[in-house]
Simulated scan of single mutants.
Amino acid sequence: MKITLVFAALFLTVFSFVLKAQHTDAAANKKTEWLMTSFLQHKTEQTTILGNPTIVLSPYGNAVAFDGIDDALFLKEMPLKGLKSFTVEMIFKPESNGVFEQRILHIGGVTTDRMLLEIRAVNNHWYFDGFVASKGVKLALATEELMHPLEKWYHVVFVVTANSLTTYVNGKEELHQDYTFNPIEEGQTSIGVRMNKVSWFKGAIYKIQISPGALKPNEFLRL
């Protein structure tokens, strides 16, 4: 009888471990897709809206416009948790008369481990900045030599792997650099501003998508 109980307890322990591992694997393989309008049309307790982001038309469907002053979305979500590599994509339109430094997407902690999609606006143009902080090591992938006109729609991609960072604009690789990345385990998400409410974004966003793993250009979203 005692042997039977021991085997039963052992079975339950192993079964529980397997279920937990399967749940972890499923979560790690889950793609996150955010249509910006859904946050305004179907607001939940997970979303805080700052200012007055508005729905506007885009070539792809309705998008959300941010005024560059006090419009933003804060989400009680952490889609990068535990990911050893990932691909972040965004379809957006940066507009004129915004500040120089604009933080568009911030995931993770305020000053601890985090990932950001940013732009720098200069003389009616902008350049892309993919930023990561991991275990105290920070790296911004950006150069003003790769400028793009404002007031147009773009698809930007930031690919983060265990040993490198790569940025793309409209399917074309811009920058690549070696980097040792450790998974981001804690934090939340802000859209339209850095999490401490500085560096507001002026423009519109149609969609943000986060995929586990490093996608190839032929797997990216299409404009």
Rank of each mutant, 00 (worst) to 15 (best):
L165K: 00
Y168M: 04
V157Q: 00
L141A: 00
T189P: 02
W200V: 04
G171M: 08
I210H: 02
T180D: 13
T161Y: 10
S199H: 12
G192A: 05
K202R: 15
F201H: 00
N163T: 14
V193F: 06
P149I: 09
L221T: 09
F158A: 00
A142T: 12
I191T: 00
F128Y: 15
E151G: 02
M195I: 09
F181L: 07
S164W: 07
N170S: 11
W126D: 00
S211H: 10
S164K: 07
T189G: 04
G171A: 05
T143Y: 11
K207I: 08
D129A: 14
K152V: 07
V122C: 05
W200I: 05
E186I: 08
F131Y: 15
L150A: 01
N124W: 14
G130Y: 03
E173V: 14
F181Y: 15
W126T: 01
P212S: 06
V157T: 06
N170T: 11
V193A: 03
Y168P: 00
Q188G: 02
K135V: 09
N123L: 11
M195W: 07
L165E: 00
K207W: 12
Y127V: 08
N123A: 12
V157I: 12
K202I: 13
D129Q: 14
G213L: 06
N163R: 10
D178G: 05
G130S: 05
G203W: 05
G136V: 08
T166A: 05
E173A: 06
N123C: 09
A214F: 09
P183I: 10
Q188V: 07
